[in-house]
Write a protein that binds this DNA or RNA. Structure first.
Lengths: 154, 154
DNA sequence: AAGCAGTGCGTGACACGTCAACTTCCCCGT
DNA sequence: ACGGGGAAGTTGACGTGTCACGCACTGCTT
């Protein structure tokens, strides 16, 4: 087997467990807020955000999966639910007949438009407001670094 | 309603979205590793870690919920699955007959003992190794800060 | 003692994510 | 032109998390 395990230091453990805890706390709070206020889950919000950011509010499903970093089956399931609630619709793709588009409906657009200000408020209240601008920058750098390094391999 | 929405700056957005992404990446990788290598989910691991850290490997269920920051029904469901797999058992509580204890079984103990070195390796490989000691400290402080501020209210 | 609000925990129904298998179609080599 | 490997997307089964509710018990109040 491998050499002796180099256990985590106090600080390393704090960083790891803290990251998990902080994430859960924030996602729970923000998610609840979105759900209760606008009937949108946190994931609904990100999907709609990605779609409204795209030209014509349309995206190839695979492209959406890429942007979100989700598995395609997850996207498929989630879109099914959103279609059922009238937030988006599917459309066939002429170029590649296997493919499909997702399009925001007017209802979807107005839902996220209504929810956006509250979302930003939440991110500030639960997260950014407790940090200095320096810490925010640091965190952004850390996240980008870890993401980049982990996306490289396989 | 409230004043004009103060939208997120580039950096703030990077920090927020980056945090979510980084978390998902890390949890997926580490979780997969635990699952494939030892048949333990990431949550199984934390539960066992909490239990083995406690005296006699026993905890009141509510206390466990507190330590993990989980809802009680989540704990209940999860323990039911772990009991089914022989990792833990429930025990009645003499003091308060509504209450119950969870206890690690020998199987549970050996499972986490076997998995621990790999877990530490994973945390290093996917996370800590990409950061400087300074960044790790910074992150630990940020996490603690956000957690503390959010636990205060309500 | 009797009654009753609150606490500790479990359960069932439902939303969500993953995995593996499947369908349909593209594209490339021969 | 056709045959097969591979890509796009869907589906079903299963594990997991949440919510609302229910049951048993406690401890207080009278």
């Amino acid at each position: 087997m491998s050499a002796e395990t180099r256990w985590l230091t106090m600080t390393e453990e704090r960083a790891w467990r803290g990251l998990l805890r902080m994430h859960d706390l924030l996602v729970n709070r923000a998610g609840r807020s979105m759900q209760e206020g606008f009937g949108l889950s946190a994931t609904d919000y990100t999907v709609l955000a990605e779609l409204t950011r795209a030209p014509d509010g349309r995206l190839r499903i695979q492209e959406l999966a890429q942007l979100l970093g989700w598995e395609k089956s997850r996207v498929s399931h989630h879109l099914a639910r959103m279609v059922k609630r009238g937030l988006v619709t599917r459309e066939e793709c002429a170029d590649d007949r296997r493919g499909a588009f997702v399009v925001v409906t007017p209802a979807g657009r107005s839902a996220i438009t209504a929810a956006a200000p509250r979302h930003v408020e939440d991110v500030r209240r639960y997260f950014l407001d407790h940090l200095t601008p320096g810490q925010v920058t640091l965190l952004a750098e850390i996240a980008d670094l870890v993401i980049e390094k982990n996306d490289e391999d396989h």
